[in-house]
Design a protein around this nucleic acid. Sequence first.
DNA 1: GAAGTCATGTAATTGGTTACATGATTGA
DNA 2: TCAATCATGTAACCAATTACATGACTTC
Lengths: 178, 178
Amino acid sequence: MANEKKINYVILGFLCYEPLTGYEIKKRIDNSLSFFWGGSYGSIYPTLDTLVSEGCVEKEQETSGRGKIIYSITEKGRTLLKEWLVRPVEKDELRYETLLKLFFGSELGREGILVHIQKFEKKTRDALMLLEMYAANLESARPDEEHQYYLLTVRFGIETYKAYLNWCQQAKTVLQQG
Amino acid sequence: MANEKKINYVILGFLCYEPLTGYEIKKRIDNSLSFFWGGSYGSIYPTLDTLVSEGCVEKEQETSGRGKIIYSITEKGRTLLKEWLVRPVEKDELRYETLLKLFFGSELGREGILVHIQKFEKKTRDALMLLEMYAANLESARPDEEHQYYLLTVRFGIETYKAYLNWCQQAKTVLQQG
DNA sequence: GAAGTCATGTAATTGGTTACATGATTGA
DNA sequence: TCAATCATGTAACCAATTACATGACTTC
């Protein structure tokens, strides 16, 4: 109960803005949620089926072209989403293998740990650059409500990644001076 | 393959320092890893069995008292741990439901989002205070290698949580001024 | 003697990924 | 024509949690 599946709400959330295919939903997730949430076809398509059977989503197949299946949200779906949105957050979870390896660092030694930190630093730097691009784009676009919330999540990522980089510097100094 | 189970290594990691019971391993996880890793009895006990049958860990039952089962690491176990430690990190993952709700904030509205942010802020502040206590303790203790790595993970948490709090301020300002 | 912690475990469930299979459309 | 992308799905697998069951020891 405490760990209700969330992919439902991700789907409903995106369908709130516009009708989409399963494929497009996956892209939306990858593009705008990926640094704090995920979702695979193996969870998206079956969930779309369930949502249809529950009357939260409607499907319509294009007669022309590729015959894409386009899903749109119903009133019931919208209500379900809102009910979830007002409920308190159940879990915010960080699972960093880098930290796990670092924690047991005395078994690996300085050199090895430094390698992990350098990779982490690079990964973070790349991710930060991407988010900064997103932020710039969102800021230059005409500000509407949707974008405002999107931008806030992006800023969260930016602040967090900057803190990571800052920490990387500290950690490298500590490890190098012994 | 990409997603090998990690609880093995968590257990081996703690057993590297000293022999422990399953119950104690759980406590170690809760006390020192909880902000970036988890583990339940339902995964610890069965994994201990497998590790024993693979010869990575040895069990010994106390004859006196409660008859606790004390596990200790073998050479094979130590080797396995080291092999994992040198391998590159596979996944660092952040899953923040708070950000998910925020992202779909236009469906909930400012007020509701502010509630989530305030709760997030409080939770973060509490966690930060705890980590700062840990850091103070670790710093005042005689510095050895193990503690150095432990301290680095704690500092990571501290930097990160400070960034979160900083972001909370920004976000509240943005939302309140409209 | 009651509450709390120490201590070990199992069964059921589950949310989710990975890998595979298939094929249409588009653009170089 | 060939590669890339668009597009939909399924089957197998899996790590892990939750909830439950049991009972001994300690401390007030």
